[in-house]
Amino acid sequence: MDDDDFGTLFRRAVATLDPPSERLAEAGLQRGRRQRQRRRLAGVGTGAAVLAGVVGLGAAVLSAGAGGGSGRTAAGSGGARPVAVTPQAVLQTALDTLPAPGRTSGYAGAGMDGYSGTTFVYDDGHGAAAVQVTLEYPPAHAGRKSPGAVVVCKTKADGDCSVLADGSHLRLRQGQQDTSGVPNSTEWEAQLVRPDGVSIDIIEWNAPEPKAAPGSRPAPPFTMAELAAWVEDPVWQSRIPAHRATATARLFTPADLQAKVAGANSHGAVDCAKAAHAHKLPAGSCPTGH
């Protein structure tokens, strides 16, 4: 077989394939639009005006990136006084940068020094899915760990680790939410630890709750490539302008986390610590008094 025969072989192997061209074209166009919009919004400031609309909607219908709002805070934010990121601001940033349009609801979250986490339910029309976004960063009083010390793939269950060109460490994992040794919902995760010490961890499930909820769809909504691109987006920042923290504060209160889990538990006797545990949030994230 000479070299030219390989041309015949390659062409014939794929000639009769009938890929979903219309769907691919439309999805490519939409992905391009979102990426272009994100780039355009970089450095334009915060989306407080748009955010007000989101707050008013409650279970908001959001078209990813279509609202014009952005959580970008790195540049051009008008010199606003920076404060530590809040769980509500993490949520708003997640909603601003969803990989695909969908309906979102069930906002909740918690935070403490060096940690802000949020959960919400996303539905693209093919089944409700829980999504959790956590941002961890070295507090001023803490030493910084190297990205390689935080992102570790020791076993297959940890997923696949890789190092990006900028020195960030990325971990991608596809697994099951394990309850008492019985795997139930499917969970997919992307975690990125950047050289600046900020860790962005996004987990999505194929069910509206990570635990104690039947699967609503065959797989979580976003592809691993979309999850990876999402955590790699420079929009995630540990310091944000004070006005963004103020503007997003009404998205939810820490009590929402308790209510969310209590609602899913027929016994109702759930305190914030249990809720935090159920959502994989640190127990210390609950306010005192709970």
Binding site: A13, P19, L24, G28, R31, G32, T223, A225
Partner: peptide
């Protein structure tokens, strides 16, 4: 897609790669 399938050797990854490529072309 035909090129993407031979590159990725996987149907779903090929779809993802095509979408990424079209997104880049759009930009």
């Amino acid at each position: 897609f035909r090129s993407a399938l031979l590159l990725t050797t996987d149907w779903h990854r090929a779809e993802d790669l095509v979408q990424d490529t079209l997104a880049r072309m759009y930009r």
